[in-house]
Structures are given as C-alpha cells and as structure tokens.
Amino acid sequence: MEKQTTLSAKQRLIRSSSKNPGETRGKILVSLCALIIIIATLSITLFLAIKGLQSFIVNGLNPLEFLFSSEWNPTSSDPQYGALPFILGSLAVTLLSALIAGPLGIGCAIFMTEISTSIGKKVLQPVIELLVGIPSVVYGFIGLTVLVPFIRNTFSGSATGFSLLTGTIVLSVMILPTVTTIATDAMSSLPNSLREGSLALGATRWQTIKKVLIPAALPSLMTAIVLGMARAFGEALAVQMVIGNVRDLPGSLLDPSATLTTIITLNMGYTTYGSVDNNTLWSMGLILLIISFIFILIIRYLSARRKI
C-alpha cells in the first residue's frame, strides 16, 4: 500500500515537470525576449563596427593618425582627420565631472543613510528624483543661459564663457543623481550589524562611517562613480550647448573644447552618407562604443570585488 503511493507520487512528479503546457509556453516567451535583446545588441555592434571601420578600410585613413593626430581639417584641400582633441575632450569632461560628482554624490548618500534618514527621505530623495526627470536639453539651456555668462564674467581667461569647465559643471549636475542613487543603495545595503559592531567597540559615528562603512562599500561606491562616468561620456546635447565645439586641443579648463558626441551630433546633418566625413563620424561612434565597453568591464570587475 505504502509502496504504491510513493510510486504514484514519483510518477506525478515526473509528469508535472515535463508535460506542463503553460511551463513550456512561458519558457519560450522569455527565451524569445532574451533572444531579441541579444540580436538587437549584436546587430548594432556589428553595424557600428562595419561602418566605423570603413573610413580606414574604404577611405584609406590611417587609424593611428585618426586616434593620435590633433589636426582636424576635413574641409581643407588636403583634408586631415585627427580626432584626438575630441577623444581627449570626452575623456576630460568625463573624468572632471566624476571628480566633482563623485565626492558630492557619495557625501549625499552618506548623509541620507547615516546622518539623517528622515531629511534624506523627505527632502533629498525627491530633489534627486526631480534632477533625474529633467531632460538634457533643459540642462543645456540653463547652462547656456546662466552658467556661460557667469563664467565669461567671472574668469578673465574665458572670452566667451563656452569652455571645458562649463561643460564639466553641467555634466556634474546631470550625473549627480546617478552617483547619489547608486551610492545610497550601496550604503543602505550594508548590514546593520557592521554599524552595531563598530559602535559597540566604542567608535564614534564618524569613525564608523570612515573606517568600516566606506571601506566595506568601496567597490559599490566606485561602481556608482563609473556608472556616472558612463552617463557623462555618452551625453551629447547638453554638453554641445555649452562647451564651444572647437577643433583645437584645449590648453586650460577655460578654453572651449569639443567631445566625440558633440562632434557627431553637430556634423551628422551636414555630411553625406558614405562620404569620408560621414564615415569618420561613424569611427568616432565606434570609439564611443569601445570606451563604454571598457566602462562596463570596470564595473564588472568592481562588482566581483564586492565584499559583502
């Protein structure tokens, strides 16, 4: 008697795992979603790779010159395509804005999680959500209207107000919510037992933050900064409105400059598909993709090093 029931239970178990039609349908559905995303990503990457390499393969540009020459002169009789000023411009605004938004965002996150949770929830959180909701063009517009004249009038080194510094400040504000949100998640996901353990040993709150919590959350805090950098690196519109868009290497923070993204958005309407000029823009797009990929690698490396 008992043996029979176990047998039938076994049979039931086997049947339910293999012959449930809903199960199979669900599996197909989600696999399809996954497949679509993979195909979309692969085709974009492939397309960008093919288009981006054409200026070197079809038009015969020297890739080294493209990467390392600072002469960008597509319209002269002997056209030159050196994208270095834009590559450096992109990297400069990205690093500089991370330098500003990183400490600010992490400081904000620590205030919200460790110092005053209630002010954090009631005031800072909504402010940050608001900052996320503002479209890039509005940031650019405010930068153009407020920041550009301010820089022009404050620093004698800046003739126009359009500068690397202006772009950096606008970008810092734009990536601040990203950095703050992820840093806040990182801090608040630390187990309370760490705080208790440190306080119970006689540490003050600040010692606890500095010597236990920040080191414990460090990989995640770095991820917050890198994600902010990825956002800054890809931003085009707002930067384009305030950075000045010149093709020379900037000599100082107050000089106007340009980035890969601003050059692409500015020029794509004026070049014909398939021309050298158009192809070099694709090459810049490819560089953007490759550097974003490097950001992702860094983030993966950091998450693997998470301690808690």
């Binding site: 187990p191 037992s193 760490l194 208790e196 353990g197 440190s198 119970a200 236990v212 080191p215 414990a216 301690k307 808690i308």
Partner: peptide
C-alpha cells in the same frame, strides 16, 4: 552579537 559580525 547573535551572529558574528566581522568587518570586511
């Protein structure tokens, strides 16, 4: 504490 809570 109830559960060991070493710092990372």
């Amino acid at each position: 504490f109830q559960k060991g809570n070493p710092f990372p």
